[in-house]
Design a protein around this nucleic acid. Structure first.
Length: 470
DNA sequence: CTATGGCACGGATT
DNA sequence: AATCCGTGCCATAG
């Protein structure tokens, strides 16, 4: 197949290494921008439509090489890499790309503000644009309004009415719920965007509006009492909220600002990698797709190279530098793809249970061990894992780094212990319970994990049980 | 007096 | 070398 030629694995220069590393840490969205920037600044680099054979420009049926040119390419000069929007492989049968119809990807913004502005382009009156920019810039890191609309109106010398109209507009763009006052309003804004008729959505709305505090403390029974519905329904509605809404919409975007809250599974965003079931064989090997940020053939422009040769000595410094850089860049992308592929192959084979059955089955692995296994430096693994997200077969999107979270399975056990407890267990009791199950951790650590999972201390859980009994 | 959270230390990990 | 993580100690709230 045409993907990565072995020549990409030959000894590296330090410059090569450095650039490979710097590319490896990037998420897809960031890489996309990087590739585009490189393309526009370097004339020696070219990107061809992926449906055309890069050699003879004949249209291609699939992502396979053109039969006419495939033999030729081996001897052809210059690295070339095929970037597809979805690059698929199966874990056990070796790497393989899968043909995929071309999808036009939505513009992937490096910057949340630009992303929003693009979407609003048609709805936003031109004279409101500066105002929108001002508002977006004034949001805090979670994407909420830091200043009161009246303040914004004053600062921009516009009417309060106008400010509120623009804010309302922003809050409807993806990610929905931006520029709201806080998590509650963000959730409500998102609720507005989905089906209104469903009774569960109606109840969810009432809960957000009237019993938000209680919801945060998971006092479902109290909520049921206050709203006069059955606890069962409250549970369902809470689950609905958890599954479909994101209280911190801005955190879905990783490039800018902080990382998503650890432990929060609700990271909405285009994943960098997708793991799914094999459609024909559920029990078979998992399917891994490593998304590429861009599609097409990326290579050094052969015309550019030829032109340089014919120009001979008169070649300017600048040109050869371009050529050098372009070739380096392509090789680095190859290297990046290669590393990601090896990494994911290992992950799906080693952590199959984790992927399919949930957090408890995560086998603790350190980055160093993985590095050893796939034969790269451990810092390479660190970079490969950083800033990437994975979509699991069940639809959850989690940071790739979660695969290396040593405490994940224990935290999951704690969650279960608490869920099944008859009376509220203290941290000490939980610790000894865990010890019986063969997990030796200190009481203090239980407390930390419990906090991470948002589980209340035993005393407060007791209060909840009382209200349930009443 | 007991359960818990804050702070800080040391060892492991990156 | 920098960071993360588990843990012990101690203050505090109930």
């Amino acid at each position: 197949m045409l993907q990565i030629q072995d020549q990409s694995l030959r000894p590296l220069t330090t410059a090569h290494l450095a650039q490979t590393m710097s590319l490896l840490v990037l998420s897809n969205q960031e890489l996309r921008d990087r590739v585009l920037a490189e393309l526009s600044s370097n004339p020696a680099l070219e990107l061809l439509d992926e449906r055309v054979c890069p050699e003879c420009h004949r249209p291609l049926r699939s992502a396979s090489p053109c039969p006419v040119c495939s033999r030729k390419r081996a001897s052809e000069d210059g690295p070339i890499v095929f970037l597809s929007p979805r690059e698929s492989l199966r874990p056990r049968s070796g790497a393989r790309f899968q043909e995929e119809p071309m999808e036009t990807e939505p513009a992937a913004p490096e910057d949340l503000a630009i992303h929003i502005l693009r979407q609003l382009a048609s709805d936003l009156a031109p004279e409101d644009r500066p105002l929108a920019i001002y508002i977006l810039a004034s949001l805090d890191e979670d994407g909420f309004l830091r200043d009161h609309p009246a303040l914004i109106a004053k600062a921009t010398r516009s009417s309060l009415d106008r400010v509120q109209r623009v804010i309302a507009l922003i809050s409807t763009a993806d990610p929905v719920g931006l520029a709201t006052l806080g998590p509650r309003q963000a959730l409500l804004a998102q609720l507005d965007q989905i089906q209104h008729e469903q009774p569960i959505a109606t109840l969810a709305r009432r809960m957000l509006e009237q019993t938000f505090e209680e919801l945060g403390r998971r006092e479902f029974d109290k909520i049921a009492h206050l709203l006069g519905v059955r606890p069962r329904q409250v549970h369902d509605a809470a689950a609905f909220i958890h599954a479909n809404l994101n209280p911190y919409p801005a955190r879905a975007y990783w490039g800018s600002g902080r990382q998503a809250a650890p432990g929060d599974p609700n990271v909405y965003h285009q994943p960098d990698i997708m793991i799914s079931h094999n459609p024909v064989d559920e029990g078979g090997p998992l399917m891994v797709e490593i998304f590429s940020p861009i599609s097409g053939w990326l290579r050094v422009n052969p015309l550019f190279r030829k032109a340089m040769v014919t120009a001979g000595e008169s070649t300017s410094e600048e040109w050869s530098e371009h050529l050098e850089k372009a070739s380096l860049f392509v090789k680095c992308i190859q290297q990046r793809n290669n590393t990601m592929r090896k990494l994911m192959q290992l992950m799906v084979s080693q952590q199959r249970d984790f992927i399919l059955k949930g957090p408890r089955h995560l086998k603790p692995m350190t980055r160093a061990q993985v590095a050893e296994a796939i034969g790269v430096h451990e810092s390479t693994v660190s970079r490969a894992v950083a800033n990437k997200s994975v979509a699991l077969p069940d639809g959850r999107i989690i940071p790739l780094a979660k695969f290396f979270d040593r405490s994940l399975s224990v935290r999951d056990r704690i969650k279960e212990i608490v869920r099944n407890e008859q009376k509220p267990l203290t941290d000490d009791e939980i610790a000894s319970q865990l010890r019986k199950e063969g997990v030796k951790i200190a009481r203090r650590t239980v407390a930390k994990y419990r906090a991470m999972e948002g589980i209340l201390p035993a005393r407060l859980r007791a209060a909840r049980q009382l209200s349930q009994a009443a």
